[in-house]
Amino acid sequence: MRILFTSLASYGHLYPLLPLASAARDAGHEVLYATASDFHPTLEKAGLEAVAAGLTLQEAFNLLFAGDTRSRYEVPEAELNEAIGKAFGRLLPTRFMTDLAAVLAERKPDLVVYEMGNPGGAFAAHQAGIPAIGHGFGRVSGGGPMEHITEQIDAFAAELGLTGSSKLFWGQPFVDICPPSVQAPAFLAGAQRVPLRPVGWSEPGDLPSGVEGRDRGRPLLYLTLGTTGASQAHLLTSALHGLAALDADVLVATGPAVDVAALGEVPSNVRLEAWVPQSQLLPHVDLVVHHGGSGTTLGGFAAGVPQLLLPQGADQFTNADAVVAAGVGAKLVGDELTTDAVRETAGRLLADSAVEDAVRGLAEEVAGMPSPEEVAAQLPQYA
């Protein structure tokens, strides 16, 4: 069977699909993966055939704000939300749908697996008469900019004759990598879910020296704000100094956009790394402090690690709410994010036996979900 996977061109949208795509390939299916060419080197490292389609997120917003000299933070929230709705609900789906139409006509896949942020995959499959299923990258949530996106997507889908609600992915099967206990109740009640264990994927690489085989009697705290945002150096600085005040070792993944020099002099128990193989690292840490991205959130669930979330945008706020509701962590939002608050909250999470119990229970729930190999074996029934 020939299967085409497609996602938006960002690590947060790409990585969650790679375990299932790889398992489908290993099961003997011919697997193609369509996304913008900037991310083809990652697909090649995963051993998958890459096909060019769509725009990167940066390209989409450059088109929407062409000639606009304002910084992101100078754009009023209402205007920014409207632009986000147009980007994800109309511009990106249109480009993906156009590019994928040619790919589908030439390669003739039996099934399209589209990531939930890329409805253009669903639209292209619908127009070509090819069965399609959705694939999540985390918790399915609404509110904020999502309402603008949903409005645009629903209008677009109606124009194409695709019936049903985009909030339930038009009744199509949906590969859900979020454990049910933290998934949105409305989605659980109405979606045609295909559960899949969230399995982290990161580019091959070695763990920082000293992580494996270390003395587990001294906590290792991991801090990351993901792969975006050169302007986040001040957040990293506040958080790392708060964590460094604890009797622990602190490992900071600064990401590609942050100028390490902007962090200033760091305490002796803090180690800075531009990049780490996060999926390999998480089982070795005692607390993860992060921005609330879906990949890190689900990775923490699977690894059984308490979490302190510092959400900045998008679905990060609802992820933070879900972490708090599940009893597996805490959040600091806006002005709450101070060095002292990070120190106090992280220290409490490390010492709280109720959090430890909740984390263990959620990790057991994740471990009981079907593996990528098990779900790959089900894919022919959807073709």
Rank of each mutant, 00 (worst) to 15 (best):
G295W: 09
T296P: 02
T297I: 01
T297E: 00
T297Y: 00
L298G: 09
L298P: 04
L298Y: 09
G299L: 11
G299P: 04
G299A: 10
G299K: 11
G300K: 15
G300I: 15
F301K: 12
A302I: 08
A302P: 10
A302E: 09
A303T: 11
A303H: 13
A303V: 13
A303M: 14
G304K: 14
G304Q: 14
G304N: 13
V305I: 14
V305K: 10
P306V: 02
P306F: 01
P306R: 11
P306K: 11
P306T: 08
Q307I: 11
L308E: 06
L308I: 05
L309S: 06
L309Q: 04
L310A: 08
L310K: 07
L310P: 06
L310M: 13
P311Q: 10
P311V: 05
Q312H: 07
Q312L: 14
G313S: 14
A314E: 09
A314N: 12
D315P: 00
D315K: 09
Q316K: 12
Q316S: 02
Q316T: 06
F317E: 00
T318R: 15
T318S: 05
T318F: 03
N319C: 10
A320M: 12
D321P: 01
D321I: 07
D321T: 05
A322V: 11
V324P: 10
A325E: 15
A325N: 07
G327I: 04
G327D: 12
V328W: 02
A330N: 09
A330L: 07
K331Q: 15
K331W: 00
K331P: 02
L332K: 09
V333S: 06
V333A: 07
G334D: 09
G334M: 03
G334L: 05
D335A: 15
E336I: 00
E336L: 03
L337I: 14
L337M: 14
L337N: 07
T338G: 05
T339Y: 03
T339R: 15
D340G: 10
D340K: 15
A341K: 11
V342M: 06
V342S: 04
R343N: 02
R343F: 04
E344W: 00
E344I: 06
T345L: 07
T345N: 03
T345S: 12
T345K: 14
A346D: 01
G347K: 10
R348V: 03
L349H: 04
L350G: 09
L350I: 01
A351V: 04
A351L: 02
D352F: 02
D352A: 04
A354F: 03
